[in-house]
Design a protein around this nucleic acid. Sequence first.
DNA 1: GTGAACTGACCGCACGTACGGGCAGAGTAG
DNA 2: CTACTCTGCCCGTACGTGCGGTCAGTTCAC
Lengths: 226, 226
Amino acid sequence: MTEPATVAPGRVRGGRRDEILVTFTRHVAERGYDRANFGDVASELGLSKGTIVHHFGTKDRMLAEVQERYMRRALDEARAFLARLDRPEHRLAAFVHAGVRYQTDDPATTIAFQREVVRLTDEPGMETARAQRDAYRDLVVGVLRDGEAAGVFVPGDARLRSLQMFGSLHWMWTWFDPQGRLAPEAVAAEFCRTLLRGLGVPETAVAEAADPDGPAAVCAREVVGS
Amino acid sequence: MTEPATVAPGRVRGGRRDEILVTFTRHVAERGYDRANFGDVASELGLSKGTIVHHFGTKDRMLAEVQERYMRRALDEARAFLARLDRPEHRLAAFVHAGVRYQTDDPATTIAFQREVVRLTDEPGMETARAQRDAYRDLVVGVLRDGEAAGVFVPGDARLRSLQMFGSLHWMWTWFDPQGRLAPEAVAAEFCRTLLRGLGVPETAVAEAADPDGPAAVCAREVVGS
DNA sequence: GTGAACTGACCGCACGTACGGGCAGAGTAG
DNA sequence: CTACTCTGCCCGTACGTGCGGTCAGTTCAC
């Protein structure tokens, strides 16, 4: 039984548990799960492999924890900006603005998650993260359906559209450079414009929702930045 | 491919090289490059690990060969349908129709390629495949720029738009099921509609380019199906 | 004979994980 | 205060295994 060990008499500080997870996450982002290994993480932090095992048990569980943390944050923040926005095009745009922002706000976790999403589908022990991912996708599908019902989006397959949108965002890790010349706001704006126009949203509403200083982007920035 | 390797008692000139590559490709598609190994491929084909090494040298070279084959085919076919289509919206739609079609036409190679594209950027020995990939992307960017110059697409960042499009297509391997209820034509049509409408193409032209029986889809099917 | 296809035994190493024990701080009894 | 004990954090080592790659040698077609 692996205990989070948050309540303990003999505990010194928060321990290095978090530190280990952060470093592991970065290694997964850089090399992928299979090539990330305990030895490198341990030597980088100046501790032994045994310590990592002590805290996390197995490598699988460590990855699961990374995924769950990322998805929990994404879910919380998505619900937060959904509560603050009402128009379907603003809500959908917020998902895009937030998705792009994660790429610079917490690149390691974001890349680690996106590189290894495929493990959510088959690997055992990933049930929690998978459920969170499904819930997140359902939020987007819901927005698409609502917008369609309200006549803001032209009729179409909401699930397919959500996958089209997620594809663009999830693929970013292969080409986006946080230090590069392309600002995340510019990427989000362009993605929003093409997507919303593609759903039949009128040009003025498109411009507002895509605008880095518009309500959707501002809301996403406030929620994610916190 | 074409030569199903004679099952003759003695060995055959040309050998089982292709057979090995096909099996290896399938394993990469199913488990990823790191978890694919010589032992499994060899035992599945009833030969020894040494034989694989004899034919390919190293595992890296094997993957490079998979990537190069896939990209060469994609490039050839892209140039073929570009030669047959003239309108920008048809050309762009053809990329989408073809991209989706690869998912069912040769799922193993397609998935193997998409899973491991990231290795094109850093790994050495991948220069050829990387150059092919860049050439392919440049074809799409060219179509986007031409369409913009011709006033068919609204102004915007062509490179970003190409990445948005590739993202949707490259992400398909994580969710698309060739045996599933969703036909590839339906996926391609929906993707085309959202994308082209998003670029400002008029509704009638969008419908024609997305139509599974329209000129773009038919052309893509003929070229890819060969 | 020549060379390509193929074999099977073997090597070296990297990596996940198990295990036994050391250490330091907190609780408690005296 | 001191002494003892408990407990979670951490270390070092060792083990088992899986895998990429080597090599000497064999078979077979031309």
